[in-house]
Simulated scan of single mutants.
Amino acid sequence: MAVNQSSSMRHLPSLSTARRRKTLQVMYELPAEGAGEKDTEPSTKKPKWEPKNWKQQLDNIREMRKQRDAPVDLMGVAKCYDPVAAPEVMRYQVLLSLMLSSQTKDQVTSAAMARLRANSLNVDRILQMDEGLLAKLIYPVGFWKRKAHYIKQTTEILQQHYKSDIPSSVEELVKLPGVGPKMAHLIMDIAWNNVSGIGVDTHVHRISNRLGWVKTKTKSPEGTRVALEEWLPRDIWSEINWLLVGFGQQVCLPVKPQCSLCLNQDICPAAKRL
């Protein structure tokens, strides 16, 4: 019997083992105090800032711009290149049109690009062209002599380092003479079909501040770009430039804006002060 008892005892857990198993079972089935409370706690993360009434303001601007008859629609950069040219030539023409457009009205830029295209506008042709003739062809765009020099410099860089094409990144584009962040983001969008950021010119800068689309007043277009990209949904980054530029050319003018004609007159923070 002793042997049988010893044999049967081997199949029974010891007291210490039973306690350990019991403890493990309790710990597994009954969560410790406070467990699971994290899922029910309210989030302490602050909601992303966005301006008041911006969606309604945007819809109103879209309504006012639905005719697409502003200068930017008819003669803007997107209308200045040859759509049937080779892809690298088309991209080069987009680059040049944006270089010419700085501090220049769309009508003047369009006319200058037409004269250049009449002279076979491509990298090889510009490199062969005398800088004086180039300056004459782009006159009277703003800073035409300086821009002629920048175009010659940039074109040489493109031939030597990019196989007569243009860079495909903002970082490389802004290294080119006469190319700033606004131009670079627009080039990426128009030439490469890649939305890298918001193209902010004087119109976008002015209107964004008037509408209160920046958390605090910004002093430069680049500051406005950074402020807008912090909250504006990315899927409308491409649209916002041409939308606000045309709106600024027709209604929200730099001087004497047409507030009485604006659908946003009741929800624009600047309307009553202008």
Rank of each mutant, 00 (worst) to 15 (best):
A2I: 11
Q5L: 13
S8F: 07
S14Y: 04
L24K: 15
Y28K: 11
E33D: 07
A35S: 11
G36S: 05
K38R: 13
T40Q: 15
K46I: 08
N53K: 14
K66Y: 02
G76N: 09
K79V: 05
Y81D: 02
P87I: 07
Q93P: 03
V94L: 14
V94S: 12
L100T: 03
Q107G: 10
A112I: 01
M113E: 04
A114R: 08
R115H: 10
R117D: 07
N122W: 00
Q128Y: 05
D130Q: 14
L134M: 11
L137Y: 09
Y139D: 05
K145H: 12
A148L: 10
A148I: 07
H149D: 09
I157C: 09
Q159M: 04
Q159N: 06
S168T: 15
E172G: 03
V179E: 02
G180N: 11
G180C: 11
K182G: 06
A184L: 07
I187D: 00
D189F: 08
N194M: 08
V195S: 04
I198W: 00
V204D: 03
R210Q: 09
K215V: 06
K215L: 14
T216Y: 07
S220T: 15
T224F: 02
V226T: 11
A227D: 10
L232K: 10
P233Y: 06
I236F: 11
S238K: 10
E239R: 11
L243S: 04
V245W: 01
F247E: 06
C252L: 05
L253A: 05
K256G: 12
Q258H: 11
N264M: 10
D266S: 14
